[in-house]
């Protein structure tokens, strides 16, 4: 249970949250993380940049970078991938799980 909590934190750490849009820069201060950094880095879909049209379920190295720690599929708001590529990625990860390339859950 506690480890699960930690994982959720980990997801949010390097996250440019869905919160209020830009404008509110540093001035807000109030609820920022302990670090206070609230800048928004524009994330671009890595697959679009690399011009990937097909995500192969056999490409374990690539897929592993999208299933952190608890081997959950990394949400789009963190990885920054676009919707079509996230769908492909999710499908590939699920296929990889079926044939034991990736774990369903980290033990």
């Amino acid at each position: 249970m506690s480890s699960n909590f930690r994982n959720d934190r980990e997801f949010e750490m390097d996250d440019e949250r869905g919160g209020p849009p830009a404008g509110r820069g540093h001035s807000g201060g109030g609820r920022g993380g302990p670090s206070g950094r609230r800048f928004r880095r524009r994330k671009v879909c890595r697959f679009c940049q690399d011009k990937v049209d097909l995500i192969d379920y056999k490409d374990v190295k690539l897929l592993q970078s999208y299933v952190p720690e608890r081997s959950k599929i990394m949400p789009r708001r963190i990885s920054g991938s676009c919707a079509p590529h996230q769908r492909m990625l999710a499908e590939a990860i699920k296929r990889a799980r079926t044939i034991a390339f990736l774990p369903y859950a980290a033990d």
Partner: peptide
């Protein structure tokens, strides 16, 4: 101990379409 079948022609055709559009 485990097997899996995947139909790949549809996926590949879609990938071709995407790259053609690009």
């Amino acid at each position: 101990i485990r097997y899996m079948t995947i139909r790949v022609d549809l996926d590949r055709r879609r990938a071709e379409k995407l790259s053609a559009r690009r």
